[in-house]
């Protein structure tokens, strides 16, 4: 089972999904920042700041996954 959990090279599809996900999370971070900045309601500010942090963590997770797969990616398709 542990062997199963080792990284395998990313497929083109997986790369596309990770890339799209980073774009989605990036947009959410920006939206949360705008909402937190523009709202005069402290509860909204707090909620949006918290969500901003969490979306930021998602981007880190996705980026780390790319980095982990970087070293095992083939240079050319065999």
């Amino acid at each position: 089972m542990h062997n199963m959990m080792h990284h395998q090279p990313l497929s083109g599809k997986e790369l596309d999904y990770i890339s799209d996900s980073i774009s989605n999370e990036d947009l959410l971070v920006k939206q949360c920042a705008v909402a937190a900045h523009n709202s005069s309601n402290p509860a909204v500010q707090q909620l949006c700041t918290q969500m901003l942090r969490e979306h930021h963590q998602h981007i880190q997770m996705l980026t780390q996954s790319l980095q982990h797969h970087q070293s095992i990616a083939p240079y050319q398709i065999q």
């Binding site: 080792h6 395998q8 497929s11 997986e14 996900s21 989605n24 997770m61 996954s65």
Partner: peptide, 22 residues
């Protein structure tokens, strides 16, 4: 929308680590 895309990404993932992440 993002939740929906994560669901699709999970079903399309081949690498177990990527699937787990999604």
């Amino acid at each position: 929308r993002t939740v929906g895309e994560y669901t699709t990404a999970t079903t399309e993932a081949a690498c177990p680590m990527v699937r787990q992440m999604f």
